[in-house]
């Protein structure tokens, strides 16, 4: 399959089930909501070393937030509900509770009402002065802090999610690869229910399973490293000089389908004339993750 001169590999991205939640951080203005949200979702690129994958989903208009203030929706994913709870709690405690004027809400209903603590344990920071409020069937905590009160919902819903959707952009040069990724990310950000957890949404250090070093269980994806074309069994043709990856986590397979579709489309729009040669994807032979995103099916 070729789109605008870009060839779409007959391969698939392989993704895993995760547990995820959406939280909404509001503040006096968008800037402060963003400050908190960025910290909340910081250092959350890969579940392997960060414990979770998180990013800002999108900003919210005051009419869209529970308390009528500007806000930011964040999605956060982890391998299980327990790990997710730990990450949410730590991050909320360090990055939202601490952030001026912020408030923290659940942005999602849990499957079968399943939820994890959001402010439930943060309340103890209130040292007994915390106040519980049930509003509309949900419990909120009001925790006295130096700028006033930190308002947080007690729990947030947990849903099944999908992590590790991806595609690779193979281009003739580094600037061209990056430009295609930027175009893709710009388009993908408009898709709801997904995040691209790496900085700017783009990852350059795609990995393979295993390493020559016993201590490591993943290492550089040498088959896609352009400088190794002559040293390893390369997947790259001579004209490809740079490869970048976009990793996508989403609340459902369909959401990731959609994100991949618009992302690849945007990358392809730049076309061969801008040095974009191929779109590929990472997988482990289909053995590890139950979710397979076949590029050609998505783009069909």
């Amino acid at each position: 399959m070729i789109i605008n001169g870009v060839s779409i590999d007959p391969t698939f991205a392989e993704a895993f089930p995760m547990k995820g939640t959406r939280v909404i951080i509001t503040a006096q203005n968008l800037q402060w909501a963003m400050n908190s949200a960025q910290a909340f979702t910081g250092f959350a690129t890969s579940v392997i070393a960060c414990g979770c994958e998180a990013a800002i989903e999108r900003t919210l208009d005051p009419t869209e937030t529970p308390d009528g203030r500007p806000g930011v929706a964040c999605l956060i994913f982890a391998m299980g509900a327990k790990g997710l709870a730990k990450q949410v709690e730590t991050r909320a405690g360090q990055c939202v509770l601490t952030s001026p004027t912020s408030a923290l809400f659940s942005g999602i209903q849990g499957e079968d009402g399943k939820d994890i603590p959001l402010g439930k344990n943060l309340r103890f920071f209130g040292d007994g002065f915390q106040i519980s409020k049930m509003i509309g069937g949900k419990r909120y905590w009001r925790i006295p802090v130096m700028d006033g009160e930190f308002l947080t919902e007690e729990n947030t819903g947990v849903v099944s999610a999908v992590g590790g959707g991806n595609f690779l952009i193979l281009a003739e040069s580094q600037p061209q690869a990056l430009a295609a990724c930027e175009a893709a990310i710009e388009a993908m950000k408009k898709v709801p229910n997904v995040i691209m957890p790496f900085p700017g949404g783009v990852v350059r250090s795609g990995s393979k399973v295993g390493s020559k070093y016993k201590a490591l269980n993943a290492s550089t994806n040498d088959a896609f490293c352009p400088t190794l074309k002559g040293q390893t069994k390369s997947e790259l043709s001579p004209e490809v000089e740079s490869v970048m990856e976009i990793v996508i986590d989403g609340l459902s397979k369909e959401d990731i389908d959609e994100a991949m579709r618009v992302g690849i489309e945007a990358a392809c729009a730049l076309g061969a004339e801008n040095g974009i040669r191929r779109i590929s994807a990472g997988n482990y032979g289909g053995k590890l993750g139950p979710f397979h995103f076949h590029l050609q099916e998505i783009m069909a």
């Binding site: 308390d67 509309g136 006033g148 308002l151």
Partner: peptide, 8 residues
């Protein structure tokens, strides 16, 4: 004070 829970 301006209390954040009141709008809710």
């Amino acid at each position: 004070h301006t209390l954040a829970f009141l709008p809710l």
